[in-house]
Design a protein around this nucleic acid. Structure first.
Lengths: 150, 150
DNA sequence: GTCCATGCAAACTGTTTGCACGCGC
DNA sequence: GCGCGTGCAAACAGTTTGCATGGAC
């Protein structure tokens, strides 16, 4: 992988090492696209390296978050979701009936943040707009049974 | 309390009862203002009713949330914060250095939501903009030691 | 060879639940 | 008095940590 080099360097500057597991976690996160939870990520990773442990997944996520390569979101319920940081910001709508997550963009949020940081002298390092409700499908059908949620 | 009557009625329509504990939880939440976590809320409540249990606090919060009188937010870290629903929407900035929470308004968010629900046929029932970064004080001082966080 | 990273299992935190008793209506 | 609500303690889910071994550099 081409970007391994960059990853190795980023890790190296903080006295860290590029391991098979770290490469793997980032790879799964990038390929799989969006908002996996730790367990889902672990499952995916296990299919490529059956020995990787959940603890390592969590530790790796912490490192990648610290380096800004991964973002953590609390969508809907208890557990966290993770996704590889992308160049274009986006936000999440979660359907409370079926659990589906829909991404959307909202350029106006950037304005809000800019005004906020200017007015109150804040340094903004992260922001997330989380919306909940019912998706189109679940409104029609009055559905209440949760579908498969990855 | 005047609003007890309204609360009782709201509860009654869903076959629920107005108990000392429920009154108490809502009262603490309203008086104490903003974003207490369950444990803080429990502590405050205990000073008025030493026997109230944490489980009851959680169960009551669930009921009040369901009735729309209370909102739950995951600010920064692991545990949830709760606040009595207010007429004016507002959002939260959390300083990752000192843990301070600053509230702010952002009317543009409402526009975003409206456009979103129209474009994608979603029914929006809740939304929250969560911002993290460093507050003015912590930027100046390069402070890293967390202060008291309620 | 050094020292960071890993796997495993145990610990921990925040939240939920089962059960017997208590209290609102 | 009926049946929901409570307190207690145990269960639970998600995440973190201590320790001995393994692997990156």
């Amino acid at each position: 992988m081409v970007r391994d080099k960059g990853l190795r360097e980023s890790l190296h500057t903080s006295g860290r090492r590029l391991t098979r597991q770290r490469r793997l976690v980032l790879q799964v996160l990038e390929e799989s696209g969006e908002h996996l939870d730790a367990e889902g990520l672990h499952d995916q990773a296990k299919s490529l390296d059956p020995n990787i442990s959940l603890a390592t997944v969590y530790r790796t996520l912490a490192v990648l978050k610290e380096m800004g390569l991964v973002e953590e979101h609390r969508l809907g319920e208890g557990h966290a979701h993770f996704e590889a940081t992308r160049s274009t910001p986006h936000y999440h709508f979660t359907c409370s009936a079926c659990g589906r997550v829909i991404e959307f963009d909202a350029p106006q949020v950037a304005e809000v943040l800019q005004r906020l940081s200017k007015q109150k002298g804040l340094l903004v390092t992260g922001a997330h707009l989380l919306v909940t409700g019912r998706c189109a499908r679940c409104q029609e059908e009055g559905e209440t049974v949760p579908e498969e949620v990855p």
